[in-house]
């Protein structure tokens, strides 16, 4: 009996000893796992962050490698100064594509600049809180519509509509594509400019109003100068979007490389050619295949310069209050 009690006590003690040891061991394990996670996680996160850098390097590598092959077959000066673009007959003068891109972009900015900035002024300086809360999300819907839908709209609605006014208008034309690209970038200009105007401190507004200025005078003489860097940056970003826009121009502007400034004609942009070149009967190592990348690197250079310019403007000329 005594023996049994002793035995039991001993077992309990043994169990206790065991469990403390176990706890220590367990904790040790836990600690080492925690330590390991603490060290491994930053490495994993860094690797993920590097993916974005690799993407950029990948883009540059892709564009450069294939373009260099292209320029070993077609000379740089033939490419950039040639005025005849018909790749299927081995004529690679990129000027018509650049002209097409610039024409579309110009039309787009003519539509988007006045409407976008006027909308921004209205939202920031005239509209009540409630109106702004309703209108801003609606404008954002405009920004969220897929470009293929805009292209469909340009081809099936805007183009026939314009054609009923202007008889020489082609079905595929620069004007309707340009107008719709303009509509697409309105929300971008409006919302970024409005942000810039909103960031101007209220004391400036109230000061000017207190001196007897009308709202219009406040907007034009106080708010716009103060927010100018943000407004210009928004326009430059929108320009870059318009240059890189693909589906609207592919669907509505046609596929005729045309060195013209006549908006009623069909034109081909840099982006539209990339689509055509990639979908047509192009084999992997043909000159046309490489020409896609030469056009791509030209497009990339255009948009990159625009984006860097926008960042530079908004940093350099920002008015701090």
């Amino acid at each position: 009996m005594v023996n049994a009690q002793e035995k039991q006590a001993y077992t309990v003690q043994d169990k206790r000893q065991y469990s403390v040891q176990d706890m220590i061991n367990k904790n040790k394990n836990k600690k080492s796992i925690t330590n390991f996670t603490e060290k491994a996680v930053p490495v994993f996160l860094l690797l993920c962050a590097i993916i974005s850098v690799l993407t950029t390097i990948g883009i540059l590598f892709t564009l450069l490698r294939e373009s260099i092959t292209f320029f070993s077959k077609v000379s740089l000066s033939d490419f950039y100064f040639g005025t005849d673009w018909s790749p299927w007959t081995e004529k690679f003068g990129v000027a018509p594509l650049i002209a097409g891109t610039l024409l579309i972009t110009f039309i787009a900015i003519c539509v988007a600049l006045p409407i976008g900035i006027a909308s921004a002024i209205f939202l920031s300086e005239y509209a009540s809180q409630r109106t702004r809360k309703i209108i801003k999300p609606i404008l954002e819907i405009l920004a969220g519509i897929p470009t293929v839908v805009y292209g469909f709209f340009a081809l099936t609605f805007v183009s026939p509509l314009l054609g009923s006014f202007i008889t020489e208008m082609k079905i595929f034309n620069a004007l309707s594509a340009g107008i719709v690209v303009g509509i697409m970038i309105i929300p971008m200009i409006a919302s970024l400019s409005e942000d810039a105007m909103n960031a101007v401190p209220n004391s400036l507004r109230e000061g000017a109003l207190g001196l007897g200025a009308t709202r219009l005078e406040v907007a034009i003489k106080v708010i716009i100068p103060a927010a100018l860097s943000g407004i210009i940056a928004s326009v430059v970003l929108a320009l870059s979007r318009a240059i890189g826009e693909t589906m609207i121009v592919t669907i509505a502007a046609g596929a005729t490389p045309n060195l013209t400034l006549d908006p009623t004609q069909s034109v081909q942009t840099l982006t539209a050619f990339i689509v055509q070149g990639a979908t047509g009967d192009t084999s992997y190592h043909s000159t046309i295949y490489y020409s896609i990348y030469a056009v791509g690197i030209t497009l990339f250079a255009f948009t990159l310069i625009m984006n860097i310019l926008a960042q530079y403007i908004s940093r350099k000329f920002r008015e701090d209050y």
Partner: peptide, 20 residues
Amino acid sequence: FIQVNVQNLAGVPSIVFGLL
């Protein structure tokens, strides 16, 4: 550099990603 890089990637036309 990573930060600026991310910003610039956001401005690259989608079709260039297609080429990549």
